[in-house]
Structures are given as C-alpha cells and as structure tokens.
Amino acid sequence: MNNILFIYPSWEERAFLGFKTDVEYPKIHTVYIIKKIKSLNIEKTSFYLKKIEEYCVSHNIQARFIDIETNGVVIWNILKKYISELNREDNVFLDITTMSRNIIWASLFFFREAFIYHKPNSYSDTWISKEPETPRLLFKHSGIIELGLPTYLIIITGYDPERTRQVLGYYEPQKVFLVIQTGNQLNNNIKNITLVCM
C-alpha cells in the first residue's frame, strides 16, 4: 500500500510550503505533480516546481509530472489515464490549495469511480434502517439557505417511505422534487407506487 499525493503547484510560496507539510505525515511515496505547459507566471511556477522536484529527490519520494493544456477534454483524458493507473489499496491525497476548479472536479470524478459499494443480494420488505434523530441536511452541500425564503427539497428516495415522510414533516417544504428509481429490478415498479401514493 502506497501513500500518493496529487498537487497542482502555482507561483505562490505556499504551494511549496504546503507540499512539504503534506509529505511529512503520512509518509508519501509518490507525488503526482500536475503542471500546465503554458501558464501565467511560468517563471515563478517553474521555480517552485524545481524546488518540489529537488525535495523529492533528497527525500526518496518518486515524482511524476503530469503535463496538461488548457483544453478541458485533454485535461479530462490525461487525468483519467493517470488516476486509472492507481491501485485500490493506495491511499490518495489531493492537495487543492492552488488547484484550479476544473482540475479539482475532474480529479474527484475519477477518484469517485474507485469508491467501493457492495450491494446486498436482496433488500428488506420492511424498513432498512431507522433514523430516530432529527433529519439533517449536509452542511455546505445542501443548496442555498436564507431565512425568509421558501424551502424547496430535492429528495432521492430509497425504499423507506417513512424516512421521506420524516424529512417532509420536519422541513415543511413549499415544493418537493422526488427522484425515484426506474425499471423493474428490485420490484421498483411496485415499490414506486407505494412511494408516490404516500
């Protein structure tokens, strides 16, 4: 199992100082250094890229450079190539300190494909899980919240209508968008009728 770091250094000093902190603990074995072939402040950026490379050599860290362009499709394909080479056992760290948004989102997309979810052979006909606590929306990931404005909810349901009712009762939204599974697998066609008619 290797500890792998992805970084996108800029002309700022914190790009190098942050990198030094990143590799101290846990011990990083390989650093993927994403760099634009052409960029603003190329001289300053090159200075810190050189310092990062020298640090890797002196600390026995493998440095792999990923050259990218400004074309979104090219960036997408290059990141896909490198990220797909990783092993599932590797621990991957993504330093977004000076990383551009399009690279952050593209990287997260491909890392997401490495997530593991083991599906059960079947689902319970009764409740799958109980949520006795107050329903909560994920902080900073639940849209725009402003006092006095009407509440709209987008709910992606499972097969537990009671939990959906609990959320509706607690937040009392003005409008609800209910997203349900389609198709006949897992008796969707029967269970969806129950959900819609709740």
Rank of each mutant, 00 (worst) to 15 (best):
P9I: 07
E162K: 12
A15M: 04
E54F: 06
A15S: 15
I116S: 12
T151Y: 00
L178V: 04
L49F: 05
L149P: 00
S58T: 13
E172T: 10
L138M: 11
T97A: 07
K27T: 11
H118G: 00
G158Q: 04
Q62I: 11
K20R: 14
D95K: 01
L149Y: 13
Y32L: 03
D67Q: 11
T45A: 12
S58Y: 04
Q174M: 08
E24G: 05
L17Y: 12
L94D: 04
T182C: 06
R163M: 09
L186R: 06
P173Y: 07
I66T: 01
F16G: 03
P150F: 07
Y170V: 05
L195H: 08
G169D: 14
T70E: 15
P150N: 08
E162N: 12
E13Y: 09
N102F: 06
W105L: 15
R14K: 15
N71Q: 08
G148R: 05
I190T: 09
N184S: 13
S142H: 07
V167K: 04
Y171A: 03
N71S: 07
E131W: 13
L137G: 01
K38H: 12
T21Q: 15
I75G: 02
Y82W: 05
D67E: 15
L17D: 11
F115L: 15
I68Y: 02
L5H: 04
Y159A: 00
L149A: 13
L137N: 03
D22A: 08
V176Q: 00
I180A: 09
D160S: 06
T30D: 06
K50W: 04
D90N: 10
L149D: 04
E43T: 12
D95G: 03
E85W: 02
V74K: 13
K44Y: 10
P161I: 07
N41M: 13
I78S: 02
S122M: 10
V176S: 04
I180M: 13
I180Q: 10
A106E: 07
T126I: 12
I116T: 13
M1T: 13
L149T: 11
M99R: 07
V179K: 03
V57G: 02
N2C: 07
K80I: 00
L168G: 01
K80M: 05
Y152E: 02
W76V: 05
E43N: 11
N41Q: 13
M1P: 11
L137K: 11
L108Q: 13
I128R: 12
Q166H: 14
K191G: 02
H59I: 01
I154R: 03
P9Q: 06
L195I: 15
K175S: 01
N87C: 09
E85S: 12
V176W: 02
K191R: 15
Q185I: 11
I33V: 14
I28C: 02
I180H: 12
N121S: 08
V23G: 02
D67S: 13
